[in-house]
Amino acid sequence: MEDFYREYILDHYRNPRNRGTIEAPDITYEDSNPLCGDEIRIDLTVRDGVVDDVKFSGRGCAISQASVSMLTEMIEGMPVDEVKQITKEDVLEMLGIPLTPVRVKCALLGLKVLKGGVYGIDGAADDEDL
């Protein structure tokens, strides 16, 4: 259990990085997990095809919040084309904790929102299986 709620997970939960909103974002997208009501919104600005600024807002469990916080750190300065390539395995590896199927949904909500944003709404629907 200590394994699960590691120091850095709690740190990201209590001191989230890039928390907030962007006034005039190039991309904004939000989604929720209807089962638990967790909701996340991500705002991005893009300059020359690269993520210039990123902020997230919303609320949820330690896993979903730590995951999205770490994800925003990961994509700062990353080309949008690369952001599109991020897989769920990448996110689970980044979290570095063993997860049950229910908690995997929590962990991947941030990525789902991010992909919904960078692909546009239609792309998100195609990526149902995230």
Binding site: M1, G37, G60, C61, A62, I63, R103
Partner: peptide, 29 residues
């Protein structure tokens, strides 16, 4: 500040089954 999902997960490790969520009563939340 422990989110109910995290709490229910920790309790499940002790084989305690509780509900975490909005309990189909979102207006109340």
């Amino acid at each position: 500040d422990i989110h109910p999902h995290d709490l229910a997960h920790i309790l499940d490790r002790e084989n305690i089954a509780v509900r975490a969520g909005h309990h189909c009563a979102q207006p109340l939340m």
